[in-house]
């Protein structure tokens, strides 16, 4: 023990005397950049392959070994995809579904979160717990009665039916994040407004809403992405062109000619278009989305 303590200063002086070589000076940042490069390649490689597949002529797509760049890039797959699927209808349906679900979920969750975070009433803890824990209930486990219920209310293959289902799915997570956000806002602001004679509606709309607007917008973006990507609900509960979303269209895009080989060229073309809106959102909303995602989890 004591020898250890004595020997350490000697080691430091020894290394400090020798001028560190290139690797010693830059070793750490080189390692960082190498790690970053590996990470970037792993993340981006699938997009590269999907994009290349979408601009490769279909005869070159089925070559062994595979090509990593087409001899002559072409938009042919995009044209054939547009002929094979009602792309713009599906795109519109996806937009309605995603915007509707995120809007409804943010409104319902915002109202509930305010009540749970600010108003003390008996049973509020239990209601919060039940709402949050219900996130663990797998959507697929209760699929059958859900189908029957929707049939009773004539909501199969309707936009509002899908929106109700989807907004409810993301609700627990949204409530959790918003409760933690509202609790961070000092209650004194609202108390001051009360003393000045504002009523509850005025306080919620004029005082609280402007303060939580960034959080609501963040959750809107996150829920938009989650709904845009959702497969199960649209797959089970839509049976016509007017309500099917892009994710369903993509899974249904099968080659009429053969049962085994899927039309990868058209699928890739459709995938590229389906990714674009999501990519735009994360490019512009990156900071907000990261804060929203980590806040919900940290408080859980």
């Amino acid at each position: 023990m004591s020898t250890n303590v004595v020997s350490r200063p000697c080691e430091y002086t020894a290394t400090a005397a020798v001028r560190p070589n290139f690797l010693q000076r830059h070793g750490q940042s080189i390692l960082l950049y190498v790690c970053f490069a590996i990470f970037a390649v792993v993340v981006l490689a699938p997009f590269y392959f999907i994009f290349v597949s979408s601009i490769t002529p279909s005869n070159e797509l089925f070559e062994v070994p595979p090509r990593y760049w087409p001899s002559a890039p072409t938009a042919d797959s995009y044209n054939r995809m547009m002929d094979a699927v009602p792309f713009f209808t599906y795109f519109r349906n996806s937009l309605i579904f995603a915007i509707g679900s995120s809007a409804l979920s943010v409104i319902a969750a915002g109202m509930a979160a305010y009540a749970l975070a600010r108003i003390k009433f008996p049973g509020s803890n239990i209601i919060y717990l039940v709402l949050i824990l219900s996130v663990a209930l797998p959507q697929i486990a209760v699929l059958v009665p859900m189908f029957e219920t929707l049939k009773t209310f004539k909501m199969i293959s309707t936009h509002h039916g899908l929106i109700i289902l989807m907004s409810s799915l993301v609700l627990p997570y949204t409530i959790m994040t918003l409760v933690s956000f509202i609790k961070q806002i000092p209650a004194e602001i609202e108390e001051a407004a009360y003393i000045d004679g504002a009523n509850t509606a005025q306080i919620i709309l004029r005082v609280v809403l402007p303060l939580v607007r960034p959080a609501l917008f963040t959750m809107f973006l996150i829920n938009f992405i989650i709904s845009w990507n959702e497969l199960l609900y649209p797959l089970v509960f839509t049976h016509n062109v007017d309500t099917k979303t892009l994710s369903v269209g993509l899974t249904e895009l099968t080659d009429p000619g053969s049962t085994y080989t899927k039309p990868w060229d058209m699928m890739s073309a459709m995938s590229v278009f389906m990714i674009i809106p999501v990519l735009l959102i994360i490019l512009f909303g990156q900071r907000m989305i990261i804060s929203g995602l980590s806040r919900g989890a940290l408080k859980g």
């Binding site: 970037a40 993340v43 997009f47 992405i225 993509l250 995938s271 999501v278 990519l279 989305i289």
Partner: peptide, 12 residues
């Protein structure tokens, strides 16, 4: 970059 795999549809 880190957001991309999270954000793209599982379908794709």
């Amino acid at each position: 970059l880190v957001l991309i795999p999270w954000a793209i549809p599982m379908v794709i």
